[in-house]
Nucleic acid binder design. Structure first.
Length: 269
DNA sequence: CCCGGAACCTGAAGGC
DNA sequence: TGCCTTCAGGTTCCGG
């Protein structure tokens, strides 16, 4: 499940392959990712455009084009972007061909992912909250986002309009690292807890980026390889296993329809 | 504004 | 073996 570290890894790996290349043709096998845009229009707005660079905005990948617009990819749950895969990839929804060879393949088992072309990339950024790795994400900024909210702290961490990039796995990991129970109301965190949570979020995300993301299920890097971040997960997807800190069995609860893993002893209510 | 639940999808895994 | 249920979770939409 691509979250910030996975999307960052994909962007970093694709950038050297894609920057400077020009779209030659596009093949669409499933129009669902395009939304309202027709296949014809999608192809028309891409072909002949040169890629000037890549960036990440929350969980969105922005492929910037010479004309000023951008191809915006959201992988949602099961999407992958693969560079020059050797064999035919199952669940291929779109293929992008470039001049002077080169092929980018978009696969997506569950068809939640989206491909769009955006003229003004600021519109993406405007809809999203603070990037947790940005310098303006301070303990004070986090405190402000949590204040006045009765929702479970985990639910607030998942709000992309507040903080952009944290998903289910890293919310659980960050709350464990900060020793905070995921269900407690966001507004009831002490200043000390907010400080711990702020540091935990940054530590967990940075470490996962170093490990090239987590491949719990379907995630793959553009080179087809799996990430290694999940090997160092303490609680996420580890229900029943011993807590690495105290040995207590990791518990599973459901918060906002999301599977939530935590240590009942290290993260008391 | 705040909050929580349904819907969108499909394959893997586990139970009986 | 085979059928049925549950699980996975990013985002949008809707109702209270």
């Amino acid at each position: 499940m691509p979250e910030l570290p996975e999307v960052e890894t994909i962007k970093n790996q694709l950038a050297p392959h894609l920057t400077g290349r020009t779209f030659k043709s596009i093949k669409i096998y499933d129009t669902r990712p395009l939304g309202n845009l027709s296949e014809k229009e999608f192809g028309r707005r891409l072909t002949g455009q040169k890629i000037t660079g890549l960036s990440r905005c929350g969980k969105y990948i922005l492929i910037h084009l010479s004309g000023g617009s951008a191809l915006v990819v959201h992988l949602r749950m099961t999407g992958s972007l693969l560079w020059n895969p050797r064999s035919a990839e199952p669940f291929t929804r779109a293929e992008f061909f470039f001049e002077n060879k080169g092929r980018l393949v978009f696969t997506d088992i569950r068809r939640f992912g989206t491909l769009s072309i955006v003229e003004d990339t600021c519109k993406i950024k405007d809809r999203l909250g603070i990037d947790p790795l940005d310098t303006c994400f301070t303990p004070q900024a986090l405190q402000k986002l949590l204040s006045g909210r009765k929702s479970p702290v985990k639910a607030v961490l998942l709000e992309q309009e507040l903080i952009a990039g944290i998903g289910n796995m890293y919310a659980d990991e960050a709350l464990f690292a900060a020793r905070i129970h995921p269900a407690i109301p966001a507004q009831s965190l002490s200043t000390g807890e907010v400080k711990r949570l702020h540091k935990a979020i940054q530590d967990v995300l940075k470490k996962a980026i170093r490990n090239k993301g987590a491949s719990v299920r379907n995630y793959r890097c553009p080179d087809g390889q799996a990430g290694r971040a999940h090997e160092e997960f303490c609680v996420a997807h580890r229900g029943g296993e011993p807590c690495p800190r105290c040995g207590t069995a990791i518990a599973r609860a459901v918060i906002r329809q999301r599977g939530t893993y935590y240590c009942p002893s290290c993260q008391p209510v």
